[in-house]
Nucleic acid binder design. Structure first.
Lengths: 335, 335
DNA sequence: TTTGGGATTGCAACCGGTTGCAAGACCGGG
DNA sequence: CCCGGTCTTGCAACCGGTTGCAATCCCAAA
């Protein structure tokens, strides 16, 4: 039935319908410069042969592609840890881009690689980037800006470039409120890097919610890591030494929270009876550990879709957006 | 310094060096038809201006792109479960493709979508596919074959098309041996779909290892699910009812194994004291649950790299390969 | 000195789209 | 009947690469 020979160019289609290349091109592009009746005829034949236009040719001609690069950290060689948070967001981004008719190229870049922007942007393969890397992020942002490559990032944009960001302040507050409602009066905090604006925001929200209850985060009950498990364990150990009286811990990433729970267990503390624990991110993991981790959820799917939409909007209009997406507390067993 | 104006075409570069387009094209392509000295001169200038050739144009001219689509299941709208196993493999594929100078397009397709092959292959955006979907996989394989689109899949290829596959038989055997060495004599099996060749292989390996010790898997101690958690819980429940004497469970996926562990706990069985549990896949998750899951590892990174390499080899030579990658038992606490 | 052949290089066509511009068809008004 | 204007359509140039073929140059062999 559909064994008709493949059409491999607009010219063949044109010949078949009896019009010129240009007319076909315009018809497929939905231009108003074509007679409705002719357009219908062309589209009918196109559908019948299920014609697909050649995208490389189109991109060449248009001087712009419809592909977006999703840039995430390379998980080096070995069974190294992929960036789980980034990976979960990728699904949302893919869905968002798909709706808008864009494709997603997955780019795993090594932290010390600066070359990818040129390789992918200057060569015309991608029209823009979604930046999810953590290491060296500021430098990469700068490089992108320098090249005038369109991009969006998850995290703070500060009005200078597009971003989608969780409501970090509210996230911190949610954690603090949860502790308070559970009667905890001596909560501790484990941050990511102390100079990471997301971390300071979370801390600010946390502190002011505590302040609302007349509490203040004792300096001895504040420690910083780098979002990784190892750092989470180390921070937890340090906190226990410095402030053994703590009865709750709010960590700025699920991985640190999980590591903290392990360390607590190894020191004979029960979670949540002795120490309540709250994480951040709501990785898929969080619901599998035991006790299941109470955590602040950033709605990965929504974040992904917004990253996609706002970047495409920027490509089309140059409109810089800094969107904040709501967070919510996912109450499980650890706090 | 490097503020030289951008070179946006081979022609500009050519003018700068004082040669023709063709010569530049050949020099960049490493052709032997160019004088070594000229080639060096061209490359030097190219590097100085860090020139990137326009890939859409190149692909158009060559009639083939250097992009591979990694096809995985769309995780529909909501906070739906992404295919964790696929996602972990993706990292390996990305690394493998990168080494070979290919790019990776991430394609999340809905199970009932048949159109993507045309959209991506006929339009010339991708040169081939890596197929990771589970639902409707046979049909999609058929469609790909019909269109003569180059692809490779994880799982069984049966000589008809390229594949990379874990050593399922050995995986099953490893699990059985572990049970035996732990003194378990009444092990149960939870498979994925009973007609999935990977599952039957695992079962075959498992059964024959048991047979080596004079045991036989009682039919009452065999159940089938679909790799998902829900099905794992259901299967486990059924097994407990039908064969309450069981002292071990080998599940064909980590998710089913984890669900089984939960169900066992809810029925008052201790893992591993009362019932030992072994999973399959070694998802990142496996080491986080408690007790940490003993499981059969398929070396995701290696699998990913091989998928990349074998597909590219096929693109270049038409050589169909069916590779089997070794599996290993990761001993943790659950068995 | 002429001739043959290898090494380099450039010309120009082609890949398959898009689009500015001109041309033809057809309309109503003057 | 002529003119200007609106609709449609096609021509041909262009996007930036690749590559077959012809042209040129140089050197050794005859």
């Amino acid at each position: 039935m559909n064994a008709k020979k493949k059409l491999s160019s607009i010219a063949e289609l044109a010949a078949l319908v009896g019009v010129s290349k240009s007319t076909v091109s315009r018809a497929l592009g939905g231009s108003s410069l074509v007679n409705e009746e002719t357009k219908a005829r062309i589209l009918a034949v196109a559908r019948e042969y299920d014609f697909q236009l050649n995208l490389p040719a189109r991109y060449l001609s248009l001087g712009a592609s419809r592909t977006i690069a999703f840039v995430t950290q390379a998980c080096c060689d070995s069974g190294d840890k992929p960036d789980l948070f980034g990976l979960e967001i990728m699904g949302g981004v893919a869905a968002g881009l798909d709706e808008l008719g864009y494709d997603m190229l997955a780019l795993y870049v090594a932290p010390e690689d600066d070359d990818w922007i040129a390789r992918y942007f200057d060569s015309g393969v991608v029209a823009g980037f979604i930046l999810m890397t953590y290491e060296n992020k500021p430098r990469q942002l700068e490089l992108l800006a320098e090249r005038e490559a369109p991009f969006i990032t998850r995290g703070l944009g500060e009005g200078r470039y597009c971003s989608v960001n969780g409501d970090n302040r509210r996230g911190g507050a949610l954690a603090a409120e949860r502790f308070l409602s559970r009667g905890r009066r001596r909560p501790a905090f484990i941050g990511g890097p102390a100079d990471d604006p997301e971390v300071t925001e979370r801390f600010a929200g946390y502190r002011s919610a505590l302040a609302g209850a007349g509490l203040e985060p004792a300096p001895a009950r504040v420690a910083y890591g780098d979002f990784s498990e190892e750092s989470g364990a180390a921070a937890m150990a340090a906190l226990l030494d410095a402030a053994p009286e703590l009865d709750a811990v709010f960590a700025a990433s699920d991985l640190m929270a999980i590591a903290a729970m392990r360390l607590l267990a190894s020191r004979g503390k029960r979670v949540p009876e002795d120490v309540a624990v709250i994480g951040y991110d709501d990785l898929r993991l969080a619901s599998y550990v035991s006790p299941a981790l109470t955590t602040v959820s950033q709605s990965v799917t929504l974040t992904g879709k917004l990253l996609a939409r706002d970047l495409v909007a920027y490509l089309q209009s140059g409109q810089v957006t800094n969107r904040v997406v709501p967070v919510e507390l996912i109450a499980r067993d650890s706090a």
